[in-house]
Design a protein around this nucleic acid. Sequence first.
DNA 1: CGAGCCCACTGACATTTGTCACCGCCTGGT
DNA 2: ACCAGGCGGTGACAAATGTCAGTGGGCTCG
Lengths: 202, 202
Amino acid sequence: MIRILLAEDQAMMRGALAVLLGLEDDLEVVAQVGAGTDIVPAALETHPDVALLDIELPGISGLQAARELAERLPGCKVMILTTFSRPGYVREAMAAGAAGFLVKDGPVEELADAIRRVLRGETVLDPDLAAATLRAAPNPLTARERDVLAASEDGSSIADIAGRLFLSPSTVRNYLSAAIGKTGSRNKTEAALAARRNGWLG
Amino acid sequence: MIRILLAEDQAMMRGALAVLLGLEDDLEVVAQVGAGTDIVPAALETHPDVALLDIELPGISGLQAARELAERLPGCKVMILTTFSRPGYVREAMAAGAAGFLVKDGPVEELADAIRRVLRGETVLDPDLAAATLRAAPNPLTARERDVLAASEDGSSIADIAGRLFLSPSTVRNYLSAAIGKTGSRNKTEAALAARRNGWLG
DNA sequence: CGAGCCCACTGACATTTGTCACCGCCTGGT
DNA sequence: ACCAGGCGGTGACAAATGTCAGTGGGCTCG
């Protein structure tokens, strides 16, 4: 019996996947969580064979949880299941030691089999997705540029961002200018959108 | 046997829901589509009793499809199933004659029963959600303000927007200024985010 | 130990954006 | 016939934004 931990914030999706996986004779969902912060505690308690994690979760992200799981529960395989096939996500997932990367666009029929393959030691990663990730430029942004871009995502003014990050407005403007250049954008809004699209903001 | 049409863009969600609903003795998924443009043709062909529609779909939106279904297949009940409980969405769904409005945050166990209740003639709408919708201000934006805000969502400059909408930059600035005031925002980026959050941009 | 890089910051400057007051043109309602 | 209100537009002005050049400090790597 393969023991599964399921982390997904949308209750209906989570419930539907749990029922679906439960229909398989050799699969068993031993934990369902809706927040990133619940993943590691639930895993330590239930000792699943595989953790199926969404990335964008309340609290910590699935990628962060994957890193913690790799450290604290090395026997547990990690699979990422996400809406977005962003190069940055794939890159980070693999760096975090994930054994599988699935997108929610894919057919549900393959999910159970992907889990079995991961348990056999295989790595599940769509070849086209792998190729696209390798082809895409890796994250060119510095940590500070990421901070500033992330803080500008809600449409804040430069003065607001500076206040929030304890930087001078001039400094923030400079980081944004650098980020705008690196993303090939024309203003901070475009730059933030582009960085988010590429998975460069975590 | 209740015949269901399922419209949802995420293949895995769509597949999982189809399997789940198919497990019920009295339910039958007779059509699954992933694009808004496929909804009406599929409904005309399969004559479902109820159409379960996501809102944000490729092609036309689920709300637009709901309006067309109400006109061309009046016997078919429409239920909206969406990620977002935006007041504007609820309002438009009800105006389009939808018999149910469900959010994907809700428990999957209630889905089948909600469908049965709609088929019995009931309206399925969470009371808290209805109250929140009535409490929220209705869309204060004029058609032009919506156009301009929608065009600014990708971070375009005012000059770009003016070019795309065949307006003068001054006019675009005026509409944006009005929208910024009505949304209580500080710049066009915040205004576009706020309008989108409220479901005012369709 | 220097070269090169990231970081934090400053000041100057041009451009963009947001606000305000005001114009005329239609259209729908009374 | 009149008025209100949406629409498209202009000009002027202040504020925010983006760019550039330059100053240090800390860090790593050859």
